[in-house]
Design a protein around this nucleic acid. Sequence first.
DNA 1: CCTCCATCGCAACTCCAAGTTGCGATCTCC
DNA 2: GGAGATCGCAACTTGGAGTTGCGATGGAGG
Lengths: 184, 184
Amino acid sequence: MRAAVLDATLAELADGGYAGLTIDKVARRAGVHKTTVYRRWPNRERLVADVLGEHLTTDFPIPDTGSLADDLRALAQAFVAWVTSPPGRMIFTAIYSDAARFTEIDDVRRDLFEYGPRRAKLVVERAVARGELPVGTNPVAVIRTLIAPIYFQLTVVSEPVDEHTAEQAAGIALAAARAGVFHL
Amino acid sequence: MRAAVLDATLAELADGGYAGLTIDKVARRAGVHKTTVYRRWPNRERLVADVLGEHLTTDFPIPDTGSLADDLRALAQAFVAWVTSPPGRMIFTAIYSDAARFTEIDDVRRDLFEYGPRRAKLVVERAVARGELPVGTNPVAVIRTLIAPIYFQLTVVSEPVDEHTAEQAAGIALAAARAGVFHL
DNA sequence: CCTCCATCGCAACTCCAAGTTGCGATCTCC
DNA sequence: GGAGATCGCAACTTGGAGTTGCGATGGAGG
């Protein structure tokens, strides 16, 4: 039953966004009564936060190809793949809505964009160790620069992202890092 | 009176966001009755769209220093300055909320991120003409890459942006453009 | 098989904001 | 100084959030 409600919430989130999300609609879609939903989740925010937590994958693989360019490409591709998947899209529409004003949901965003880069920065550190990048390069800044263009195209330009977007993002981060832009 | 309501809306938008925006509160803050607001604006969305349209500056100056690096720096600084100003912040919180689901408000975003780059790409085209960048460089992509890191830090990382952010954004866009990442 | 306890469905609430309506007062412009 | 427009005000309707009390059901243990 819990699963049915979570799925229904995700689906409702997909077409109406957070603003159009009503507990009643979620309950009906899940084939359950409104009261039942309220008995398990105290409010909308907690319900949505629960859904997001369920579909959040912070344990994506960290590539180690021996080449920074390839590693960045792989990371960008993985991010694009996740973000274009149904759960990824839904999580995005949820996170970047008014729901983000609630700490429960804002925490999910932090998990996504702080814990993620904290793991992914490994590829940058390895590149520095290999001598591919100057010593003193800020690893988290490189990863952020890798994500930013994809994120920008997705939310601002609202054009679909694909492999080419990932490719370009990797190119941007690589060129900037090599030029020493992220030097401390 | 119209001005008082628009100012009050902007102020309400600032502390409560779009989700916390109620016509009643706006009216009270403006020293006006709720009905009066409804007589001039049919709904919340139109009111907010009206406010945004009022404070939108699409006619920012296009720098022409003779150096792409300096031009990009100037553009980034201008964007940071606008985005950290009170109206800029308010417009941002409004645009990146559920309000964006309404076409009236989404149009404002398009004006901001399509018309802006369309003008700013001049500095890139001039750089190509000067031979600073390879022929065939996509000018809009360069401008987007300039904006993306600033936007990312502002909305995702939710850390304050400053001159250093602008500096780094300019460095990223410049390095990537020189490396030929935006080649068609 | 039967009882007990937990869970669910259901209807009937309260509360609050969106948006509407009718009317009386006021202000303005000619 | 009168007509038309604008505003204040109170009293609605509608719809979703969240709550409460009660009755039905269903599974586990004796």
